[in-house]
């Protein structure tokens, strides 16, 4: 690890200023992903600007929804009674991620900004376009069990690891961003990007952009939401696939739906196509299956030394059916 300076800025504006002026500076939040990358030699900032004290760590009621401070810890968000009852999928997503200790450390803004756990990205002795542009993608032709089936490119097949981000995508959240130019908001579903020809960028944020708040809108349907994570261990493992869903069923017919997938793309995947198919149809397994199949029509699976990731297509379809059936049959 290279030496770095460490600063605790007086407020969010000076924090943004410090990072913006300094090309090799980085914001430090909970540190759970950044410190790991420093140790692995994946990133080499020479200045860390600690933002845990300059953004809110509280959760406030706001226009029927909630404003979550960027510095709020994952465990505190998941424990908040308003989150648990109004946005249960978010609480479930948070609680299915990482471990109790990590959730006590990781922040609201940091969790969605964590980077892929692609083993080649995390091993600096192998090629990786995300880590070293132009070096190639070692995952292609390697071990691909955890890799993307939607939206990947020939440059990168990594998946986004955050559970929280999948729930926020489904629940129509918005992020508030402070930059040297001022404040702006970004719909959560537009925060992350597909790899395309430049996998180095996970999100649309620029250097010096600081997430200050995550806004959850007033959302009656969110009360009927769930997050289901399929993984290889019963706990403390990243998703093979995950589903965040919300459903409103009236007289056996789906009147409204929200659906997002995790573990299958470079970003949390909002399943807009599937939602369109669900709405207006009877709440049956056949409908759920059709919707999931439609969303996955463009899936491109990878061969691999481990048998590849083709299993994710049927797995995700079956998981969608399972989650939507449960939402319809066991309203919260």
């Amino acid at each position: 690890m290279r030496p770095f300076d460490y600063r605790t800025p007086a407020n969010a504006v000076t924090a943004v200023q410090a990072v913006t002026e300094h090309p090799a500076a980085a914001f430090l939040g909970g540190g759970t992903n950044l410190l790991d990358h420093l140790k692995l030699g994946i990133t080499h900032p020479d200045l860390l600007v600690d933002v845990t004290s300059v953004t809110a760590d509280t959760i406030e009621d706001f226009q029927g929804g909630l404003l979550i401070g960027a510095a709020a810890r994952n465990s505190d968000i998941a424990a908040d009674y308003r989150v648990r009852t109004r946005y249960p999928a978010l609480a479930e997503a948070l609680l299915s991620g990482a471990s109790g200790q990590l959730r006590n450390m990781a922040t609201a803004a940091g969790n969605p900004l964590q980077r892929t756990r692609c083993p080649y990205f995390q091993d600096p002795t192998t090629p990786c376009n995300k880590r070293r542009p132009g070096s190639g993608c070692a995952a292609i032709g390697g071990f691909t069990r955890g890799h993307a089936i939607l939206g990947a490119s020939t440059h990168c097949v990594a998946t986004h690891p955050s559970d929280m981000a999948v729930a926020l995508t489904a629940l129509d959240a918005t992020v508030h961003v402070l930059s040297a130019q001022g404040e702006r908001t970004i719909p959560f579903a537009e925060l992350h990007r597909l790899p395309g020809a430049d996998p180095t960028r996970d999100t649309v944020l620029d250097h010096g952009d600081l997430i200050t708040l995550i806004e959850l809108p007033y959302s009656p349907i969110a009360r009927q939401s769930r997050y289901y994570k399929v993984r290889d261990r019963a706990s403390f493992a990243f998703a093979l696939v995950s589903v965040a869903a919300a459903l409103t069923v009236t007289d056996g017919v789906i009147s409204d739906a929200r659906l997002a997938f995790g573990g299958i793309a470079h970003k949390p995947w909002r399943a807009n196509r599937a939602e369109q198919i669900l709405i207006g149809e009877p709440a049956t397994d056949a409908t759920y299956r059709l919707a999931a199949e439609h969303e996955l029509a463009d899936a491109r699976t990878l061969d691999g030394l481990d048998g590849g990731n083709a299993f994710k297509v049927p797995l995700l379809i079956r998981t969608v059916v399972s989650v939507l059936r449960r939402l319809a049959e066991e309203p919260r």
Binding site: R117, P119, Y120, Q122, A138, S235
Partner: peptide, 22 residues
């Protein structure tokens, strides 16, 4: 990974051992 000759999931997040919940 035979292309490189080493174990690529060389950590405890990717090389899974059972957790308490298992």
């Amino acid at each position: 990974d035979p292309r490189f000759g080493h174990v690529i999931n060389h950590d405890l997040a990717e090389y899974h051992i059972a957790t308490c919940a298992d």
